[in-house]
Design a binder for these strands. Sequence first.
DNA 1: AAGCAGTGACTACAAATGTAAACTTATAAA
DNA 2: TTTATAAGTTTACATTTGTAGTCACTGCTT
Lengths: 150, 150
Amino acid sequence: MEVSSALNISAAEWQVMRVAWTLGQVSSQTVSEVLAEKMAWKAATVKTLVGRLVKKGALTATRDGKRYLYQPAISEQQAMDTASEVFINQLCQHKVGKTLLKMVEETTLSQTDIADLISTLQTKQKTAPEQVVCNCLPDNCQCAAGDGTC
Amino acid sequence: MEVSSALNISAAEWQVMRVAWTLGQVSSQTVSEVLAEKMAWKAATVKTLVGRLVKKGALTATRDGKRYLYQPAISEQQAMDTASEVFINQLCQHKVGKTLLKMVEETTLSQTDIADLISTLQTKQKTAPEQVVCNCLPDNCQCAAGDGTC
DNA sequence: AAGCAGTGACTACAAATGTAAACTTATAAA
DNA sequence: TTTATAAGTTTACATTTGTAGTCACTGCTT
């Protein structure tokens, strides 16, 4: 089963979370400063976003004098994994491989990342199917080929 | 530069596009039937979605008697690549590798997909950096480690 | 020719999202 | 203690998104 507390974080909110995840604990002002150039948001916008994140349970607030310090209530990796899952599940399973390939091609990966990926892939290779069937249509795929390859 | 016709397709719309991409050409009724169990949408909902997709330029409509036949105006792979890019760019670059790994672990990939991935990774390995620096903060990373590793 | 049934077009509407102004309140400084 | 100010809280508002009802039109059928 899946706990799947979903907790969906929007794109704008995600930016705020990244700062919180990176710094561990932030004031809304810090977030504003950090995202100043990248987002050019007014302080009010950041406050709204932070407020929504607290309400959603993605951030926890701790009083600190006149202000609050916010800390992530969920781990970045967990959030990213959930987001990845949602993203992948939205795609045609038959084409996920191609898309993953594109992502690997377009992304800068570290030696470690690459080594881990290769290792995992080699293991998967032992039991991987010849074809991953398209799941865009119910049961029987009616696509051109008619063999589930879309 | 980037043409970046973005053309952002929502989650619900994506479901419709998948059917269109798979069948090449569809009537709104076909979409309804195909997504019947998976989405349980009323016919009206599908029509709205199709309408929006046409307006967005993701689908093209061709008259066919009393109805229209819709065909994708953009390729699935292109759409997926764009979506991937947007998704990846939203994440901390330092952690993209871990996330990609998770995706690879959680996804069913074909022998070909795996072979292609390994091949690409081995090539990247030759020029990959030791570390991918976190880009969650402006210039100087202030995270714990202070060395850009978040 | 009249009518029915399937389609598209228009309208609806709440929730989520992106952005932000305005108001209020609680400190820190004077 | 008064006050300036930075924070948080409330309110605002246009879009987008998810879902769907309703109305009008157009061929196919009798």
